[in-house]
Amino acid sequence: MTETIVFTLNGKPMMADVDCRLHLADFLRHTLKLTGTHVGCEHGVCGACNILVDGRSMRSCLMLAVQVDGAVIETIEGLTESGKIADLQSEFVARNALQCGYCTPGVLATATELLEQTAPTREEIRDALSGNYCRCTGYHAIVDAIEAVVKKRQAAP
């Protein structure tokens, strides 16, 4: 069974026919070829598939593609292109807050939402990151990178 959906993808209107059983992560990856969103479990635990739906981080493996009809979707590709998280990304690079990078787009989606809160502490950063598994790093550099952006954004006028 397929349905036609209309939604906003990374700032642009988009239309597609989707198989109703297809989850959003597979739709983004395999239909739209936006492979920056990753899949690590398909049961909502690892956070590798986190993207922003209507401005909030969500598991794209736990949404059906058909459900994004009318929604505003931002994937790592869009976040990158818009420059919205350029500071975060460069801090991740500078601190080597990633190794294999498989978790990174999901971590960045979480961090994007987290950074909208007022000045999260180190503990709050760790708490928010708890929905994102990283198997390579020790999390330390990721926390450092986000903390650094918190401080820089605070300092900025």
């Binding site: 990856r29 492979t35 920056g36 990753h38 990158t80 690079v93 990633l98």
Partner: peptide, 21 residues
């Protein structure tokens, strides 16, 4: 020195096996 591929990976431009079509 930061890794060159890190800039690619944070942009979602990783190229993992399942990304290949």
């Amino acid at each position: 020195i930061p890794r060159r591929e890190a800039a690619r990976l944070v942009a979602g431009k990783g190229h993992y096996t399942d990304d290949i079509d």
